[in-house]
Simulated scan of single mutants.
Amino acid sequence: MTHVHAPVDAPARLRTAGLRVTAQRVAVLEALSQSAHAPVDALHEMVHRDIPGIALQTVHGIVNDLTDARIAQRVSLPGAASSLYELARGDNHHHVQCVVCGRVEDVECVVGEAPCLTPSDPHGMRILEAAVTFRGICNDCA
């Protein structure tokens, strides 16, 4: 969760996506912009500081709304206790994950243009994206 995005104009981003601007949505979107690859419980903890009454289930609902609106995207990694979320970048980047501490970092496209990889047999499908997860041990854990 070390990669941090530039500040986001949350109300404008919500309006552009056709979502109603609420204090809770703004707070969740701002928390998401401050901590890439965050599980919902971490986002809830961040938002709870400013909005003490917000329920974990409310944050789940907001993250789902942001994902459906393509403002956020879900990152499912092997061995992760739960899905992680990040601001949608509109690209085809990948991830590297430490198998010891769980740290996750972005990896830009490995080679060439998106979708970066060509399957040996696409089975008649037009490929839209490729998701690769590199797993290793970070220097701190080694």
Rank of each mutant, 00 (worst) to 15 (best):
H95K: 03
C101M: 12
I71D: 04
G90A: 07
Q57W: 08
L66R: 06
N92P: 00
S83D: 15
P78M: 07
A80T: 07
D68R: 06
L84Q: 10
T58W: 06
V63R: 00
L66E: 04
T58L: 12
G90R: 10
C101N: 05
Q57P: 00
G61F: 06
Q57L: 11
A69I: 01
H95R: 09
V75N: 02
P52Q: 11
N92I: 01
R103E: 10
V99H: 10
V100Y: 04
I71W: 02
S83K: 09
D68L: 03
R103N: 06
Q73S: 13
L87T: 02
R89W: 07
A81E: 14
G53S: 12
A55Y: 00
A72H: 02
V63D: 00
G61A: 10
C98W: 04
D68H: 08
L77E: 05
R70D: 14
A81D: 14
V96T: 12
Y85Q: 10
L84R: 14
A81Q: 11
A69V: 01
N92Q: 12
R74I: 14
G53T: 13
V75S: 04
L84E: 03
S76Y: 03
V96Q: 12
D91Q: 12
G53H: 15
C101Y: 09
Q73T: 13
S83Y: 08
G102L: 11
A80R: 07
S83L: 10
V99K: 05
R103L: 13
R70H: 14
L56S: 08
A81L: 11
H94R: 04
H95C: 05
V96H: 01
I62H: 12
D91K: 09
T67M: 09
V75I: 14
L84A: 11
Y85W: 10
Q73Y: 03
V100S: 11
S76M: 10
Q57T: 09
I62V: 15
Q97Y: 01
V100R: 10
T58G: 13
A72W: 02
A80F: 08
H94L: 05
G61R: 07
G102I: 10
V59T: 13
T58I: 09
V100M: 10
G102A: 12
R74T: 15
P78N: 06
S76C: 06
Q57F: 07
N64W: 00
P78G: 08
S76H: 08
P78I: 06
V59R: 00
A88F: 04
R74H: 11
Q57S: 13
Q97N: 02
S76E: 13
V96E: 07
R70P: 00
V99T: 14
I71A: 05
A80G: 06
N64Q: 14
V100K: 09
V59M: 08
L77Q: 04
E86S: 08
D91C: 13
H95M: 05
R74W: 05
H93N: 07
R74M: 14
I54P: 02
S76R: 14
V59C: 12
A88N: 15
R103I: 12
